[in-house]
Design a protein around this nucleic acid. Sequence first.
DNA 1: CACTGGTCTATGGTATACCACAAAAGGCAA
DNA 2: TTGCCTTTTGTGGTATACCATAGACCAGTG
Lengths: 238, 238
Amino acid sequence: MATSVRLEPIESNFLLNDLTYAALREAVLEVDVYSESADLRLDERKMAKQLGVSRTPLRDALTRLEQEGFITIKPRRGIFINRKSKREVLEMIIVWAALESMAARLACAVATGEDIAMLRQIGMQFPEDEAKANLSEYSEANIKFHGTIMRLSNCQKLQELGEELFTHLKPIRRRAMRDTSRADRSVVDHMKIIEAIEARNEELASDLVRGHTLRLHDYVRRTWKFFVGESEDLEAGR
Amino acid sequence: MATSVRLEPIESNFLLNDLTYAALREAVLEVDVYSESADLRLDERKMAKQLGVSRTPLRDALTRLEQEGFITIKPRRGIFINRKSKREVLEMIIVWAALESMAARLACAVATGEDIAMLRQIGMQFPEDEAKANLSEYSEANIKFHGTIMRLSNCQKLQELGEELFTHLKPIRRRAMRDTSRADRSVVDHMKIIEAIEARNEELASDLVRGHTLRLHDYVRRTWKFFVGESEDLEAGR
DNA sequence: CACTGGTCTATGGTATACCACAAAAGGCAA
DNA sequence: TTGCCTTTTGTGGTATACCATAGACCAGTG
């Protein structure tokens, strides 16, 4: 028998279309779509040259991004990064509320004690007063908190959809970050949510989560302006 | 001035990739993926020839279908139609429950009297006893009923996601159709839901809708077998 | 016969040439 | 100058040739 050497499987996901997709997606998400002057037009051939790939894998990536709703491809006209209207943002928040409140309900039923303990740990990372100070760090913990609730539901589909929504709201969050006024209230809300889940109170946990997110909805609805000329009425669910 | 005739814009969405996508999607949905013998392998070049297009628009369509989760493309291996595992189906039902219960809640707040009247009309189309008899027709009305609730929420995103889920569950519904035992219970549930929405009782409407859908979840969980060898434990949210 | 290593074939990935159409630019008559 | 028509240019769409690799196949060897 031959000598056997120890080898790890070599995993080179060297598919240009995947790499291109990843690069492009990140780039698109970085664009500050909410400045009036932002250039939302993408040049296919130019990008291909920049990335050093041909148009084919690039177009593959573009197709995916279009389907995910990040861009719009207008035949023979151009490729454009999508702005989300206020209405769309509000609707996404509503969907998020629907998903997360269901997740909280499931978490009450299926999460282990340790998982819930972890949730508490994350939620308590920043006491009320610290939250306002280190807003950026708190924001991280905040994201993690909500992500954890999704995870505790033990329902992958719920999680996936949540993450997708989250990605779409990323440019929004960047903007929301400056808003310090909401941080304190969040901390209190989170504590109550943790307690409800610890008590395995499905009804309460679900209500609290929904209420928490819908308060964000209301806040954005009342205080945010998006673009000049954008219709102010006809808002989601109102 | 020349005579001006009235002309509708000729919308020849003559983009091969779109047409290909539509055709392919329909074809894939028609495949009875739940027969053991079904051929889940797709031949790219062959399909291109059959459709009379080149591989390019076909691959575009395939990319989209893959992202929607209908197929999986394995580089240098082949293209395969996805089967949904029991777990996935159960998870989709849960997500559906989350979305529709939120929709019902919103409907209570924003739906017009006429809209609700329409909902009642759809819901009452088949009295309890008729439902079992014309199962196929009832199924149509049933779908319409739930779709209407989504619509009354006046939240497009909720609607879109619902429809997407619905499409994925299509092969499942085909199979569920034969199941007559659940029809009668549904009719009663629907009536209660209508009444709750008419009373603008958000809490109740939401609870009833969720309960209704989760009952389907439980039913599928307990009674359906998918494939031999598929794990019976580790089910969604249990 | 079992096994090893090379080779062939099928398949998805990639590059590229070309096409059709839209919009802009240019030209020309009134 | 104005309005209409032609030309040009830029864009995404499509076809196709070629490439790299997974896995089947096959032939030689012990």
